[in-house]
Amino acid sequence: MTVKGRVIVIELSVHDAADVLALELWDTAGAPAVAQALGFALPPAGRSAGDDQRRAMRFEPTVWLVEGAAIDRAALDAAVADHGAVTPIGGGLVRVRLVGAAWRGLLMHDGVFDAENPAFAPGCTAATVIAHVAVRLNVVAPDRCDALVPASLADGLIARWREVAARVDTPA
């Protein structure tokens, strides 16, 4: 007997995140110089700024994740100066790109975060836990959400996401 349903349509692609830097400020006076170097102000809590070429994401109180091929590391170091430190962390991350309106439903599985809330919209970020894995989410567009996932745990989570995304889901 078949159960009628609709298929969640999601395109899931995996990319390395070698470019990601952790920019920490222990002294907020460093913010203007960093904004100058980036081309935009450092975003507030739960927000991101910029685009795929050059982006800053705020997940933590004093740390911004900076990504993108157009980022000038030397300029960033100079701008940060004595106000903080820049540390590469991209070797420990995998970037998962979820494309398709159903990304919100996908992220509800094995999770505790309200990805279905319309207020979680482009320009919003959230760090949460999904299937025991710490993930950092950035809503890039209405039908695209990027997830930064720890490299050692990525395989298991991506396999789980592919499994959920592929199967027939009964209408909610």
């Binding site: 400020l25 222990w26 907020t28 913010a31 450092l42 507030p44 809590a45 997940f59 933590e60 109180p61 004093t62 959230a126 760090a127 949460t128 836990v129």
Partner: peptide, 28 residues
């Protein structure tokens, strides 16, 4: 989540949280 620290005042019988404040350095 954000990996930040917080102090909260919780009623240990009812679990009602009556106050929350952040702990840590000054934040932008």
């Amino acid at each position: 989540g954000c990996r930040g620290w917080l102090e909260l005042r919780r009623h240990r019988m009812t679990h009602a949280i009556v106050a929350v404040r952040p702990l840590g350095p000054a934040v932008l």
